[in-house]
Design a protein around this nucleic acid. Structure first.
Length: 489
RNA sequence: GGUUUCGUGGCCGAGUGGUUAGGCAGCGGUCUGCAAAACCGUCUACAGCGGUUCGAAUCCGCUCGAAACCUCCA
């Protein structure tokens, strides 16, 4: 199909026509989670955002290699680069091996992502499995004269780099300002400048996660893994680098600096950043302690939640906002998403019941064009969803005989709704497993037959008694024109 | 303080110069023995002040307010 996809590039702060470096191949790298805790709502945003992008690029016919890493080493407790490794700290507290903690939370992350119908990336590399590549990269940077060793640790010389390059090209930071604005922190004496970042850190004796190197037994700096792994799997230059806006500086800025020095090329053509999810107007984050875990949403098990919200409700909630806008959590907003999603899904089921007419009163192909237009405009899922609701209205009206559709248009509409809702937005119909239970549906048929008999005899007392009893049993009866239906509450 | 960005109706959330966003809630209606559900229709807006323009929610300036980043966080 004709390429009209525009993406907002943080590097240029503009929407740009998406032209892959080597079509039809697309390389995409996204910063994944640090696995030292359960995934919360905030983690769902980049996962779903880049899942949407992954799905849409594939839909357009691109062959996408999507790399999303697991960070299992290198994140330090504070910027002084003196803190203990997050994974190691958790391990000591829990009396577990670090790799045991990593495995546990990685598995749980995967389970949560599966529930959200987030497709698995093509490659999911772990930082701990790429120590050799990271050491090699440090050496390249040292050979280029942009790194220096200090007490067994290696730091990136930001000031020197900035003389021939622009440290701030992505974030808009100015090195001179950084100098005057960086706070005094402990352990800065090893560095030439406070804004220099660690490429390699010497491990303290009690530090469990450590690897040998020319400089010391230690571990790689936390920006390095993404540079090393993106280079390894996508090459010196690739198409898309994604992540949360909070990683823009210093993480992504430093990645650009490292890769530029090591590979003599700027790593990614397009930098895409998703915005934050807020709660009461504040970023939902681990450090603030105001996060709600995904499992808590699914179980309704959190003080801030009035009820449980299904994975698809959470997914739809996120997709109803544009990925670059902040999204505020509230029960009201979740409830609205839940109802809206039901409406959308029910209309898709209704397509199968439509009776074709000789002519159409709705322009389905124009609607489909609008859907593509929305997605081509920087993956504007809320606009897409608005158009899909337009499709729902057409379907429902046609079912009510207020609109008419030809057999061709019904097919087109079915195809359009399925491909955008299921394939691109990645939403799934959520049927209650009980409803698919053969024994229960047989039982319900018997009960509804009895009730119909009572209703035919105008025996409202019996009819209502059955209905009330079923409600108490957790089953809701709906009387429609075409007879009664039921669903589990 | 610096960098980046934002302020839209009861709630969430699109939209960047003139033309309906959409969802939820509310209201009206259809259906129904009743109820619920479902469906259809529909009202309320663009932080404040000034400027540019024939015309601004949309561009510019100022004021007020908010957020992210500058320390680990998606």
């Amino acid at each position: 199909m004709e390429n009209k996809l525009f993406v907002y590039n943080t590097l240029t702060r503009k929407k740009e026509l998406f032209v892959p470096i080597k079509a039809p191949h697309v390389g995409m790298y996204v910063c994944g989670p640090t696995v030292y805790g359960d995934a919360h709502l905030g983690h769902a945003r980049p996962a779903i955002t880049f899942d949407l992008i992954f799905r849409y690029l594939r839909h357009l016919g691109y062959k996408v290699r999507y790399v999303r890493n697991i960070t299992d080493v290198g994140h330090l407790e504070n910027d002084a680069d003196e803190g203990e490794d997050k994974i190691a700290k958790k391990a000591r507290l829990e009396q577990l091996e670090p790799m045991e903690v990593v495995q546990y939370f990685t598995d749980r992350y995967h389970t949560a992502m599966d529930k959200l119908n987030v497709l698995k990336p093509s490659i999911e590399p772990r930082a701990s499995g790429h120590i050799i590549e990271q050491i090699a990269m440090v050496k390249k940077i040292m050979n280029a004269g942009m790194g220096y060793e200090s007490k067994g640790s290696v730091y990136f010389d930001v000031e020197k780099y900035n003389k021939t390059n622009n440290y701030g090209i992505l974030s808009g930071r100015v090195v001179e300002d950084l100098l005057s604005n960086t706070r005094e922190l402990e352990g800065q004496d090893e560095k030439r400048n406070s804004f220099d970042f660690a490429l390699w850190k010497k491990a303290q004796p009690e530090h469990i996660m450590r690897w040998p190197s020319d400089w010391s037994d230690g571990f790689p700096g936390w920006h390095l893994e993404c540079s090393a792994m993106s280079t390894k799997y996508l090459g010196d230059q690739f198409d898309i680098h994604g992540g949360g806006m909070d990683l823009l500086f210093p993480h992504h800025e430093s990645e650009i600096a490292q890769s530029t020095v090591a590979n003599h090329k700027t790593p990614a053509k397009y930098w895409l950043h998703n915005n934050m999810i807020t709660i009461n107007g504040q970023k939902m984050g681990k450090s603030l302690g105001n996060f709600i875990q995904l499992d808590e949403f699914f179980a309704g098990d959190h003080a801030a939640l009035e009820k449980a919200y299904s994975p698809m409700t959470v997914r739809f909630f996120i997709l109803q906002a544009h990925y670059r806008s902040p999204l505020d959590f509230s029960n009201e907003a979740l409830l609205a998403s839940e109802k809206g999603l039901q409406r959308l899904m029910k209309s898709i089921a209704t397509i199968e019941k439509l009776v074709p007419s000789n002519s159409s009163t709705a322009d389905v192909s124009a609607l489909q064009a609008k859907c593509y237009e929305a997605m081509n405009d920087d993956f504007n899922s809320p606009i897409l969803i608005a158009h899909l609701f337009d499709g729902s209205r057409i379907i429902n009206s046609a079912f009510d005989k207020k609109e008419s559709l030809t057999a061709d248009d019904i097919g087109l509409l079915r195809n359009m709704m399925h491909s955008f809702v299921f394939d691109i937005l990645g939403l799934l119909p959520e049927t209650d497993p009980q409803e698919g239970n053969k024994v229960i549906s047989n039982l319900m048929e018997i009960i509804l037959d009895l009730r119909l008999e009572a209703r035919t005899n105008k025996d409202w007392a019996t009819s209502d008694r059955l209905r009330d009893a079923l409600v108490k049993a957790g089953i809701c009866i709906k009387d429609t024109k075409d007879g009664a239906t039921w669903e589990v509450e």
